[in-house]
């Protein structure tokens, strides 16, 4: 009896919590299908109004925010940051976790201290640096400016180091005894073992940079280099300000990240068995 009942109760109660938790976003999705003059009608109660729903806002938002092109730029940015970042950060993290060298502790402290630097406050000096490096102007330099400054990330080095540290040493030692090079051990043994952490880093990176705003605004000077958030923000200031379009664009902009999250999740969980100490 309770074996059936208990999980069922768990599902139902959790579903209720989830709906309550998501209420603001449910309102958002619902309102994105409502005609402009009805969006705010009835305040939050409007969520129960199902008349006149239509998808026109989506088509308009897609066009007005140039979503197709913006998606391409944002996805390229995310891919670049992940690609370069995963390699560079995990290499550094592995060195901090497993190797001994002079000045390791002060260097690590310095790296950790870099975590706290937010781009909002460093945008101006960073822009000067990017310009000195030729990272402004057309699509390629701009992509460079969107990717390179954020690929090495103190936060990720710190995070991955934690996970390397919590790996058991046995496998790596065995490989070392077999004569494998340090890089090989890192590449073939250590890195695959922290797959859940890598998946987490991917999600965090995509997430952070998908919502980047101030930096793209400064470097994405041409229309063909605009990211999704800039496209979305344009709808806030580009008259006529249509909340239906804004909300629809927000839904569109959210979907790719959720998709990536869902995909990465498989790795975050499947790892259970992989990491398990045999």
């Amino acid at each position: 009896m309770s074996r059936v009942f208990k999980p069922l109760a768990g599902w139902i109660s959790s579903a209720l919590v989830a709906v309550f938790f998501l209420l603001p976003l449910i309102w958002m999705v619902h309102a994105s299908f409502r005609p402009e003059n009805r969006i705010f009608a009835g305040g939050f109660g409007g969520i129960l109004d199902f008349g006149d729903l239509h998808a026109g806002n989506y088509a308009a938002a897609w066009r007005r925010a140039s979503m197709g092109r913006a998606m391409f730029v944002s996805l390229t940015q995310a891919a670049g940051i992940i690609g370069i970042g995963l390699l560079v950060n995990s290499l550094a993290a592995y060195a901090f976790a497993r190797m001994d060298f002079r000045g390791k502790n002060p260097l690590f402290a310095l790296v950790v201290a870099l975590i706290i630097l937010p781009v909002e406050v460093l945008a101006v000096p960073l822009f000067l640096t990017a310009r000195d490096l030729g990272l402004t102007g057309g699509l390629l330099p701009t992509l460079g400016a969107l990717i390179l400054p954020f690929s090495a990330k103190a936060f990720n080095i710190y995070f991955l180091r934690q996970h390397f540290l919590s790996l058991p040493m046995e496998l790596e030692e065995a490989a070392r005894v077999d004569g494998a090079s340090t890089f090989r051990i890192y590449w073939k043994i250590a890195l695959p073992s922290i797959r859940p952490a890598l998946a987490t880093v991917i999600v965090l990176d995509v997430l952070t940079h998908w919502s980047d705003f101030i930096w793209p605004l400064i470097v994405c000077t041409r229309e063909e280099t605009r990211t999704v958030q800039i496209g979305l923000a344009n709808l806030f200031t580009e008259p006529p300000i249509q909340y239906g379009h804004i909300l629809a664009a927000a839904v569109i902009a959210t979907l790719p990240v959720l998709l990536i999250f869902r995909l990465a999740q498989t790795h975050m969980v499947a790892s259970h068995n992989n990491v398990g100490i045999k």
Binding site: A92, L114, I157, Y186
Partner: peptide, 23 residues
């Protein structure tokens, strides 16, 4: 130590250039 610095170099160069230098 040489391997360690090799592992660290790419990240340190990027961090130095894009985080430390602006700071």
């Amino acid at each position: 130590a040489r391997t360690a610095w090799g592992f660290l170099a790419p990240a340190l160069v990027l961090l130095g250039l894009f985080v430390l230098w602006p700071t």
